[in-house]
Amino acid sequence: MKIPQSVLVVIHTPALDVLLIERADAPGFWQSVTGSKDTESESFEATAVREVREETGLDARAPSHVLSDWALENVYEIYPQWRHRYASGITHNTEHLFGLCVPKAVPVVLSPREHQAQIWLPWAEAAERCFSPSNAEAITWLPRFARAFAVG
C-alpha cells in the first residue's frame, strides 16, 4: 500500500524551462516528478532524490544540480481511480514541494512503466499543460522560488 505522503519535484533550468513527463497509465496527463515515501521514516528530501532518479535518471545531488526544499505542502483528495493503491479509507495525500535546477534542458531516461513522453517547456506553458491543479500552481511559483534560492 502507498503511503499518503509524497513529493512533487519541479525540475527546471536557470532559464525556467520546466520538464514535464506524461504518465503511461493516463495519456494526456502531464506532470512533474511525483512519488510517495517508501517508508514512514523516509525523509521528504530522500524521497525527492529517489523519485527523480527513478523517473528521470537524473541525480538530484549531482554537483551541477540544486535541489531546493520549498517548505510548502499541498493536501489534496486522491483521485478515485488511484485510491485502490492506498489503505482502505485513505482519501487525501500530503505532497511536499521541491525544485531541482539543472544546468540545461536534457533528454531524460523515463521509467517506461510510469511515463511515456517528456517535454521541456517555458514555465508558463508547462503550468498550462499540467493536468493536476496543484502541480500547475507549483510551477507558477517557480520564478519566485528560483530567485529566493539564487538559482539562475
Rank of each mutant, 00 (worst) to 15 (best):
Y76D: 09
A105P: 06
A71T: 13
Y76A: 14
E77I: 14
G99S: 10
S88A: 14
V75G: 08
V102C: 00
W70M: 13
T91S: 06
S88K: 15
F98N: 01
R83E: 10
A71F: 09
L72K: 06
Y86D: 14
Y86F: 13
E73P: 02
C101Q: 06
N93P: 05
W82S: 09
L97W: 02
W70T: 10
R83M: 05
Y76F: 15
I90C: 03
Q81M: 07
W82G: 04
K104I: 10
E73I: 05
I90P: 00
K104R: 12
N74T: 07
W82V: 06
A105V: 05
T94E: 09
G99I: 00
L97Y: 02
I90L: 06
Q81A: 13
T94F: 02
H96Y: 09
R85S: 14
T94P: 01
I90A: 04
L100F: 01
C101I: 04
H96W: 07
L100C: 03
A105D: 11
G89L: 14
L97E: 04
L97S: 01
N74D: 07
L100S: 01
N74S: 14
C101N: 09
D69Q: 04
I78N: 02
H92N: 13
F98L: 05
R83V: 02
L72M: 11
S68V: 02
R83P: 01
P103V: 02
T91R: 08
K104H: 11
N93L: 05
A71P: 01
V102E: 00
Y76N: 06
I78K: 02
T91F: 12
Y86T: 06
G89F: 04
V75R: 15
C101E: 15
P80D: 10
L72F: 06
P80V: 07
R83Q: 14
T94V: 09
N74K: 15
Q81C: 12
P103E: 05
S68M: 09
L100Y: 01
R85P: 01
Q81G: 08
Y79P: 14
K104A: 11
S88R: 14
Y76K: 14
Q81E: 07
N93R: 13
D69V: 03
A105F: 14
D69C: 08
